[in-house]
Design a protein around this nucleic acid. Structure first.
Length: 472
DNA sequence: TAGCTCGTTGGACAA
DNA sequence: TTTGTCCAACGAGCT
């Protein structure tokens, strides 16, 4: 008698390499039915990440078909779909890779208890982080609220080797029906931006692994300094692939450790960045309110602007604040679906401090635009920038975009690449911005660039510091 | 328990 | 031009 099938519920783990759960499923000898469920109510993705998720799913379906398997696509509430599939296939188990943000945990907990009540084995696996949030504790048994002690706690910790790539998955005798992803409208929110962003996406695990290899070979030696230089490609760009699980953080970490052991000092900084990603999930797991509320409640009384329709906020989203580095970074975001890490800090500081606007407005815009959108990393980053997050004494830390430009874009290369009008030698990306934005914005390449910042650097800084002094 | 040190990512100003 | 100090003073984490 044939053993019942395993439904493998694929989420943000769209790879065959170093996939703990899929690898174990393959070894059982039981038929494995990979399934992806588009649950609009829970995923609630913004325009760009939703489109990118669609690309990841389509690609992974082809990859699975290439090893004699398939990816069954369904829409609807996850639990309902899983139950339908169990009824259709007689599957006796549902397996998946764990998530750690509050929405994923709530959904998965409900799914697991419901399936078990129905007599279906539900089993989840690690893989989306290096060290699961409950496995890292302070010496008094608490969770970490500061990065450096957590880094010291895990930097030398043993990490199991990567598991070999899955090369075959036993197929069921009958495949359940699959929907066609092209009917899902994953790119519907993209409008004119899709064609432009298509130039910049790097989809799939083969591409992700090539990206990692190239980064280790070429960029890692200079990483410690180059990662801050906005005009050059000094970072790994792997966030895009890590977001959809096209590469495992463990594979990146082992590659970094290998380089470190061979004397590449830049590797230590790269490893730290990977642990920062873990730290964000650590915080999201232990203090889930970080996703949507001020991490420090005493900030609830701060007089943020919460109106996203003010001219100042609109100018920020459209890259028309009159502050060159801020506008260049906001346009990089719109044209490429990515923003340099330093740019993220600079635009966040300008929005939350100079414009005194609530970080959640910025977070929501990033959720629309970022191809590497990640709930944990973004919540942590925005709260850090705003000053209400888990970091001590930051409220006088107001970035001056001009000073930042002198340090991190001294040759103006970054600003000129993305900012038309203000630079005669602007890049093709600067022109692409006007091809990508919605016609409804009413902007064109010929428009004059704002002659003055909407909020000056000095007075904006002063106003924010005054407000911080008197908050609450 | 108490005390000590330090905190990814900064800016302004003085010397 | 570069370097050091202060901003205001808290809380995390360790010893």
């Amino acid at each position: 008698m044939t053993q019942s099938a395993i439904l493998f519920w694929m989420r943000r783990d769209l790879r065959l390499s170093d996939h703990e759960g899929l690898s174990q499923a393959a070894q059982t000898g039981r038929p494995v039915i990979p399934v992806f469920i588009h649950d609009e109510a829970v995923d609630g993705l913004g325009a760009a990440p939703k489109w990118r998720m669609g690309l990841a799913v389509s690609h992974f379906q082809e990859v699975l078909q290439g090893i004699g398997s398939d990816l069954v696509l369904r829409r609807g509430p996850a639990l309902d779909v899983l139950k339908e599939l169990i009824a259709e296939t007689g599957a006796g188990a549902v397996w998946w890779s764990r998530g750690y943000d509050p929405a994923s945990i709530a959904r998965d907990t409900a799914v697991k208890s419901s399936l078990k009540a129905q007599g279906v084995a539900a089993h989840s696996f690690a893989g989306h982080v290096l060290f699961e949030p409950w496995s890292v504790q302070t010496k008094t048994g608490g969770y970490y609220k500061v990065f450096t002690p957590m880094w010291k706690a895990v930097r030398g910790r043993d990490l199991a080797p990567c598991v070999p790539a899955v090369r075959a998955l036993p197929a069921p005798s009958h495949w359940p029906a699959s929907e066609d992803i092209s009917t899902w409208g994953m790119g519907a929110g993209m409008q004119r931006g899709m064609r432009i962003l298509s130039k910049h996406v790097v989809v799939g695990e083969a591409a992700a692994q090539a990206r990692l290899a190239e980064f280790i070979d070429l960029a890692l030696p200079e990483y410690a300094l180059a990662r801050d230089q906005m005009g050059i490609r000094g970072t790994s760009m792997l966030s895009e692939n890590l977001t959809y699980g096209e590469i495992s953080p463990r594979m990146c970490f082992h590659a970094g450790r290998m380089s470190l052991s061979m004397g590449q000092s830049g590797a230590e900084v790269f490893l730290k960045e990977l642990v920062w990603r873990d730290f964000a999930y650590h915080l999201a797991f232990h203090t889930p309110h970080i996703i949507s509320e001020n991490w420090r409640a005493e900030w609830d009384a701060f007089p943020w602007n919460t109106d996203e329709t003010t001219p100042e906020v609109v100018a920020w989203t459209q890259g028309r604040t009159g502050v060159h580095l801020v506008d260049a970074a906001m346009r990089e975001l719109y044209v490429t679906g990515y923003m340099h890490n330093r740019g993220r800090m600079i635009v966040a500081s300008y929005l939350t401090k100079h414009l005194m606007t609530h970080w959640k407005i910025g977070q929501a815009w990033f959720a629309q635009c970022l191809l590497d959108w990640d709930p944990a990393s973004n919540a942590m980053g925005w709260q850090w920038s705003a000053g209400c997050g888990p970091d001590a004494s930051p409220y006088f830390r107001v970035f001056n975009p001009d000073t930042q430009a002198e340090k991190f874009d001294p040759d103006r290369r970054y600003r000129a690449r993305y900012l038309a009008q203000a630079y005669a030698d602007c890049g093709e990306e600067a022109r692409d911005y006007f091809r990508a934005i919605p016609a409804s914005w009413g902007l064109s390449f010929e428009d004059a660039y704002p002659p003055q910042p909407i909020v000056g650097l000095a007075q904006g800084r002063q106003r924010a510091l005054e407000a911080y002094k008197t908050r609450g």
